[in-house]
Design a protein around this nucleic acid. Sequence first.
DNA 1: AATGAATGAGTCTTCATTCAT
DNA 2: AATGAATGAAGACTCATTCAT
Lengths: 227, 227, 227, 227
Amino acid sequence: MRMDDRIGERAGNSTTLRARRPRRRSRISDERRRDLIDAAIRSISEVGYNEVTVQSICEAAGFSRGLIGHYFTGKDELLLEAVRQVARELGDAMRAAIRAAGPDPYDRLHAVVRASFTPPGFTPEKASVWVALTGTARWSPSLAEIYRSLWRSYRQGIARQMTRVAEQRGVSIDADRAALMFTQMVEGFWVGWTADPVAIEPDAAEVACHAFLDLLLRRPTATDVSA
Amino acid sequence: MRMDDRIGERAGNSTTLRARRPRRRSRISDERRRDLIDAAIRSISEVGYNEVTVQSICEAAGFSRGLIGHYFTGKDELLLEAVRQVARELGDAMRAAIRAAGPDPYDRLHAVVRASFTPPGFTPEKASVWVALTGTARWSPSLAEIYRSLWRSYRQGIARQMTRVAEQRGVSIDADRAALMFTQMVEGFWVGWTADPVAIEPDAAEVACHAFLDLLLRRPTATDVSA
Amino acid sequence: MRMDDRIGERAGNSTTLRARRPRRRSRISDERRRDLIDAAIRSISEVGYNEVTVQSICEAAGFSRGLIGHYFTGKDELLLEAVRQVARELGDAMRAAIRAAGPDPYDRLHAVVRASFTPPGFTPEKASVWVALTGTARWSPSLAEIYRSLWRSYRQGIARQMTRVAEQRGVSIDADRAALMFTQMVEGFWVGWTADPVAIEPDAAEVACHAFLDLLLRRPTATDVSA
Amino acid sequence: MRMDDRIGERAGNSTTLRARRPRRRSRISDERRRDLIDAAIRSISEVGYNEVTVQSICEAAGFSRGLIGHYFTGKDELLLEAVRQVARELGDAMRAAIRAAGPDPYDRLHAVVRASFTPPGFTPEKASVWVALTGTARWSPSLAEIYRSLWRSYRQGIARQMTRVAEQRGVSIDADRAALMFTQMVEGFWVGWTADPVAIEPDAAEVACHAFLDLLLRRPTATDVSA
DNA sequence: AATGAATGAGTCTTCATTCAT
DNA sequence: AATGAATGAAGACTCATTCAT
């Protein structure tokens, strides 16, 4: 199916080509949209992004095929909303973890690590949707945008905390580069777990990321040569 | 399209229901298979794994649609071969880089890093095919197998060299975990570059990975807390 | 096209690889299935079993090509149902004729003959579908089964009535063999009419079959040598 | 595949639309044509008329796919020749049987019966090709013509012999009708054996046809009522 | 003479979408 | 609000045929 990026915007805002009544947002309307989005997430996770069909989604939602047309301009929009939803929940989980970790930047970093590999931030469903997204983003501006914004804000937060820890410890680091290394390692673990869950387990991934932070933020020896 | 994993094996071995001519491997036959595989790689890279069609491949190859049937069981087998080909070339490039780097394990590690982000190992085409693979492997045993084998051998090589460097330097590391961290960081950079080529550039990725190695293998301070 | 005999069973029972909605039998659903089956019969009769296409059927039914997928697993299933339908109607017509003929076995035999060459049992459409079936049954277990069951029951009924007439008249016959001769003669006339309608007309065929019955069931001379 | 009846004529005579070198009949040329025709017969018998492909024929002949174009205008012509060949051999076998039976018309009739259900006239291969023909003749003028001519001559011969026997015995029969009954019974047995070889065996068929002749040609009682 | 490489038309099937009820 | 009937476009695959070698 072709990701039609013109309808990537929110349904409410978009003016699609063929006139379509905007269906004012009632209580039940929101509920159905949500039902379908959740079903889409489950369905992607189950059969894969390529194999999802309107049929498989509506079956997962317990509704008939035709319903989708009442709440979304089409399959593409629904899928996009589903991915957006996952991205939003990932971001929310991170923020919540940071908030819960208290003010200490070191604690916060490790809280982010934990949140990155344990529910509700990391779940099999979310991870597989996310990885499906990464595998398609290159050819879909809308998905790429979702990808960019999640990591951009994640990365910024990480860099900020790293800077503070480094300052606390008197360590000098290139925070931007370190944050980049960190986010891509996390990304790599997500992808790895999805593609090869035997070799890459969430627990090990979490431990590895904690270790990376410590490696990065430990005080170097006098003779240290690292850049 | 459904990745039918039963036909993942080489065409020569598979016995489909309808007897299929074993197609003696002639010179031209091999050449055409190669042509089509290359075209498939280009086509995946151009339009994405989901959007590749027999037509897009054959157009890229400069042949008519029907030709695929002469050299492959079907589209699925061709795509699989294309992905295998990419994986093989990635592996070959790594091995060649190591060989070229000479015997020193430290040089070898950095050579692998370089090869991971510069041609011929890393090319936009290969990277995008690879990332398409990672986004689908979860739902396709054949793709998952390709994924596993590439990283498994890559990881082993890395761990071996890391162990040797650590011994040389008198540093104690958990080589397996370090290798895991390393491979997933590389994977994360590949995915990141593909999905967001502006934020993540191959050069920066390479620098970051070199830095990671140094971080990992530098002599720690007496007070260091890392595992 | 290949007659896939694995899907010869009713759609409701079959479990195909991809789960297929059992399609609740609604009023309109039954009606459409029937429409398509009738159209398939017309289409076979018109262009021949080998030349029937999904398109020719749907055109005959006045629907679009895609509809077939809603009501049948595929073309094969539809064709099989069409042939089953013809066989069923043939059997029904015979039974109805026998019932209408009253209790006398001699009357019943001739009623069967009449029904075998006049509507509604025998119609050009039914005959041509039937003959198409006979020409393919050898290579299709499902069609062969249809063939077998029709004639088996036809033959049994004939043999029973023949036995009774023979008893009435004090004639000794080998009823099974006679029934076999009879059914194959009828079959031969059907085939003959279809392939060469000029030489073999239904009227003549009917007369011939009546004559055969009389020949068989007449009282023999004292010197008769027939077995 | 569409039976293109315009090329039903012999290759040598026909002027097909696209210019085609007539390929003068050399020794080897005739041999190859014959090879291909035989292979076509085997192939029809094996996979059915509908499923025969140029590939299956050429494989059966031990040649490559392209060869067919050298000796026939196309698949259709080859199939037609194959069917013609079968019809010719059936006719030849009947004539040979009659000749071998000597001058007595009664012997001749039974010789025809025997030849109709035993090799070389009747063989599984020939029978299945023949039945495939009967199932398609309705929609193909060329096949219909083959059908007609075989039975026409068969029927004439039978009628002639029946007349002679009837005269010898002083029995009055409608020879044409009797011949028709006879040929259609034979046809019905052929079809029946092909479609349901368990219920209808050649031996039983032969016995039944002998019985039919005796039934037909026995001296009737004074009170006989048959027409 | 024979091969097999290449073509492209034709067919079945899937599926997103529309719409009357 | 929800259904499911119907459409038609798009894709994969088969296969007869052509033709250079």
